[in-house]
Every structure is written in structure tokens, then in C-alpha cells.
Design a protein around this nucleic acid. Structure first.
Ligand code: ZN
Ligand code: ZN
Ligand code: ZN
Ligand code: ZN
Lengths: 159, 159
DNA sequence: TGGCGATTCGTTATAACATAACAGGACACG
DNA sequence: CGTGTCCTGTTATGTTATAACGAATCGCCA
């Protein structure tokens, strides 16, 4: 029920809500949430983890649909471009946004042990980045922030 | 003469100093700065910009030496692993460290206009990342921080 | 009604980035 | 010497991402 990707939650609800938010946002902004785009978003939401483009492609194909890399990358370009999903540069992978609709500069936690990824609060980080960049007279459009480490349950398992 | 990659500086000096620091550090820690590793570091220092592995390979070959991808990636693994160079995840590229020898968690500014990359001060950012992660009971080993935007001179040129 | 631009999608091919696997050479150590 | 370790050369392959072109769809308006 929480926003953290490390906690258990009502996943059916989280998925339905994210999809609905995407639909409403697209309707409001005149964006086309086409079948392909929606399908890729559904997979990301259902799996609730970081997935490579070719992982997504495998799922699409397993569902009996012929698909090629450009199809997936186009859908991902749309979803990432409009904030429904994010790219994890460190993993060359993609994940559904945990806070769709809200305007935010995402930052991530990546557990090196279990592979789970969580979006974390980023206000303080964004502020620190802008302050540091301002000192060099640099204007930041966007910041990639991806922290690797160990989540609570993996630390517990290791002990 | 400054640490910012956006400013002009005495590049011969900066390069010689970085190489010397690398040699001293390797001697002290019993690491082998072999010909291949040293050469890749020299290229990164000379070019003073982010370079892809295959860009480095092209330079090696232009210098008349046969080389294959694994050669470059091995050298980069060494240099990155010991802090003499960094990987820019956003660019799939590598750059010589601007502060070799000092223990630091690097963070970067990437100008989308001119492509220059600078290492920026990261104490405040690291602190903010650890604070945010701690709130989710997550222990951070390492954080990728890469801010994209526009440097001063490019903003000046655009105006 | 018919043309027209904009957007999306299918398809083929290829570019760009990275690693697996194995053999050989250099070198230190006993 | 024999042996283990580290580094390198080489071949091949795996993984991630995009270029390019044509066809289908749809809203728009002469
Ligand atoms: Zn998000
Ligand atoms: Zn974990
Ligand atoms: Zn550095
Ligand atoms: Zn610039």
C-alpha cells in the first residue's frame, strides 16, 4: 500500500490506478494511448520491476503478437517522454512510474541483491544537485539519480 | 586551472599531473599501470571529454596498434575500478577523473549543447541521497548522479 | 469527394555497446 | 625447473538501440 517498491502492496489496485491515471492524463493532454503503448505500460505495471526492452519484447511475443524492437522502443519513448515510465540508465532498463500524474524529478534505489527498484523522494536531492550545478554556472534540465545498495529485507537475509 | 571541465585551463599540466598521480597511486597500492591501461588513460586525459569505448578503440588503431574491444574494456575496467576514470551511464561513455587520488563519489554535469562533461562537487548530493534512501531503510553503496543541462558558455551563445 | 499532412505502425536491416571463452606470454616464487 | 597469477591477443557472440522506408489511419478542409 505504500509508494516504496520494497514493500508489499495491493498490486491489482496499484496497477489499475496507474493505468487509469495514464488514460486520464492522455485524454486531458490530447495524447494517444494506443494499443501498443498501453500494452507495454500494462506489462511494466504488471511485472512491477525494471525490464529491458528485449524482456518486454519477449512478453509481447509470448502473448502471441509478432513484434520487433522498434515497436517496443517507440512505445517506451512515448511512455518515458510523457512520464508514465522511466529509464534506469544504470540498468539499461525501464520501469513504470510510481507517481504518474504528479510532476516529479525521479530518483531511484536499486538493490544489488534482489534487483528490486524503488522510486524515492527526490526533492532534497534535486535541490542539492541544482545548488552544486549553480556553483559552476550550469543550468540543470534533468538529473539522473540512481543509488545502488541493499534494501532492508536483503540486509536482514544476509545477517 | 580550475576543476571545472567548462573552463579553460593549462591542459598539459592537468594531464601530466593526473598521469603522475595515477602512477604514484598504483605504486603505492601495488597496482600495475600497464602500457595498455596507461595508454587508454592518456587518451582520455588528452581528449579531455567523454569517449565511448569504440572511440578509444579508434584512437588506439589510428596510432597504428591493432586492438580489439576486450582490450579497451579491460583497461577501462581497471581505470574505473580504481578511480582513475569514470563511466557516464547516461552517455555510455568514459571520462578521466578530474580528482584522481582523492576519495570521492563523483557526480557530473553534461552540457546537452556542447557535449562537455564536468565533475561537480558532490558532498551535498551524496548527503541528500543517503538521507532520502535512509528514509526507506536502504543502504547506499554508490550513486549515479548525472545532471543534463546547459553550461554557461552555451547559454551565452544561445542568447 | 478527394487530396493532404500528421501520426502511428510493420518490417528489414544495421549500428552501437559489451562480454564469453580460450590460448599464450611474462613474471614471481619456491 | 614447475607452477600459479596476472595480463594480453583473438575469435566469436551477446545485448541494447536506431535508421530507413512503406503502408495504414485519421482529421482537415478545399
Ligand atoms: Zn516517476
Ligand atoms: Zn533487496
Ligand atoms: Zn573523479
Ligand atoms: Zn555547453
Amino acid at each position: 500500500m505504500t509508494a516504496s517498491g520494497f514493500d508489499t502492496h495491493d498490486h491489482g489496485h496499484c496497477m489499475a490506478q496507474a493505468l487509469q491515471t495514464a488514460e486520464e492524463t492522455c485524454a486531458r493532454k490530447g495524447l494517444q494511448l494506443t494499443a501498443q503503448r498501453r500494452r507495454v505500460l500494462e506489462i511494466l505495471l504488471r511485472e512491477h520491476r525494471a525490464m529491458g526492452a528485449y524482456d518486454l519484447l519477449d512478453v509481447l511475443r509470448a502473448d502471441g503478437l509478432g513484434a520487433q524492437p522498434p515497436t517496443v522502443y517507440r512505445a517506451l519513448d512515448f511512455l518515458v517522454g510523457h512520464g508514465f515510465a522511466h529509464k534506469l540508465e544504470r540498468l539499461n532498463a525501464f520501469i513504470a512510474c510510481a507517481h504518474p500524474g504528479e510532476r516529479h524529478a525521479p530518483s531511484f534505489l536499486i538493490c544489488k541483491s534482489c534487483g528490486l527498484v524503488a522510486e524515492m523522494p527526490s526533492e532534497g536531492i534535486s535541490q542539492a544537485v541544482m545548488t552544486a550545478a549553480g556553483g559552476l554556472d550550469f543550468v540543470v534540465d534533468r538529473a539522473v539519480v540512481e543509488a545502488e545498495g541493499t534494501c532492508r529485507s536483503c540486509r536482514g537475509a544476509a545477517a
